[in-house]
């Protein structure tokens, strides 16, 4: 060991953190990347420092979910784009947008301008609505919101979002998804997911009322859900049950970019990854579709998931660049540990 290992480690840690900050900004040239690889190859201690900084950078992404964002800080991207592309003063643009919303949206959307928010596949985003309520949007999601002096209404067109309702005794907060309307109580927080004509409501905090038409024989119904409850509404009818804290945490793992599996089948797991990635996982062999899986994965890390399947589950993964095909591997040798 060198005379002062701590001082030396400190210097290495600093260089590693500088690399991670620079890489995260993007725009590193090929030459810079090559010099990073050379620095890493010079000493495994460099690698350790670099990956520690890397992991810390990844983990601080979770802060995004916590942030008490001030209203107005996250201006709706769609609105900004629209105004810019029309090249007319913002005030006129807003008025035009409002009248367009009235014409296109029908009676339900007749007052106040409608703002639309959307995320692309693999994208997550936090939006603070004009009333101070927060919405976290998951991948491939579209939300339309209209806040007026008399009411607060939103429509989840597709995807998944977590709503944290700012209390306001004068205006109710109602989110519509398909045929269901979810009304959030004071300080309610709830996660709404729309997939395959089914609406799932997970109540995180407070309580919500759900009204819809998925009662027996399509009759209208109303139900009240409290924190921890998961309601499922759709063609198969309406159902509600309580979740364990672990189940609720898994359902909300998307907020920090994770997929947590706990006994899901391989085909369910593949479908979950495919929500977040353009390159799909294809379960090519029906005999492995029912494998039950557990584990923590990053949404974007399809390769890591495929690798875990290969090392732990006797599954072969073939990456063609366009898709990852999964099939049963030849009988595997036992792992060394």
């Amino acid at each position: 060991m060198t005379p002062d290992p701590k001082a030396q480690r400190d210097a290495v840690d600093k260089t590693a953190a500088e690399w991670v900050v620079r890489l995260a900004t993007g725009g590193c040239s090929e030459a810079q990347k090559a010099s990073l690889e050379a620095w890493l190859a010079a000493d495994p201690a460099h690698e350790v420092a670099f990956e520690r900084a890397n992991l810390a950078w990844e983990r601080t992404e979770r802060l995004r979910a916590l942030a008490a964002v001030e209203p107005g800080r996250a201006a709706p991207e769609a609105e900004r784009r629209r105004q810019r592309s029309w090249k007319i003063p913002a005030r006129i643009a807003a008025a035009v947008a409002a009248s367009a919303a009235v014409a296109g949206g029908g009676l339900l959307w007749a007052w106040g301008p409608t703002k639309a928010y959307a995320t692309a596949v693999g994208e997550r985003r936090v939006v603070v609505l004009d009333d101070g309520s927060r919405v976290e949007m998951n991948t491939d999601t579209r939300l339309e919101v209209r806040i007026s002096p008399t009411g607060r209404r939103a429509r989840l067109v597709r995807g998944e979002a977590l709503f944290e309702v700012r209390s306001d005794p004068r205006r109710s907060f109602i989110v519509r998804a398909q045929d269901e309307e979810v009304k959030g109580g004071a300080k309610a927080a709830f996660n709404l997911r729309l997939a395959q004509q089914t609406v799932k409501v997970l109540v995180v905090d407070g309580q919500v009322e759900v009204r819809g038409r998925s009662g027996p024989e399509g009759r209208p119904f109303e139900s009240r859900l409290t924190a921890g409850a998961l309601g499922t509404f759709g063609a198969a009818g309406a159902a509600a049950r309580n979740t364990s804290s672990g189940e609720a945490e898994r359902a909300l793992a998307w907020r920090y970019g994770a997929i947590i599996l706990s006994g899901e089948s391989l085909s369910e797991a593949a479908a979950e990854f495919n929500r977040y990635n353009v390159k799909p996982i294809v379960v090519a062999d029906p005999s492995i579709a029912g494998l039950r899986l557990g584990g923590y994965f990053k949404q974007a890390d399809v390769e890591g998931f495929a690798r875990a399947l290969q090392t732990g589950f006797g599954v072969k993964a073939v990456d063609t660049g366009k898709a990852i095909y999964l099939s049963r591997a030849a009988p595997a040798r036992r792992a060394a540990f």
């Binding site: 840690d13 600093k14 953190a17 500088e18 991670v20 900050v21 620079r22 520690r52 900084a53 992991l55 810390a56 950078w57 983990r59 601080t60």
Partner: peptide, 16 residues
């Protein structure tokens, strides 16, 4: 960048 590096190192140490 200097501030980011400093913050990252503090978080990294704290997590480890």
């Amino acid at each position: 960048e200097k501030h980011l590096v400093k913050a990252l190192r503090i978080c990294s140490e704290g997590l480890a």
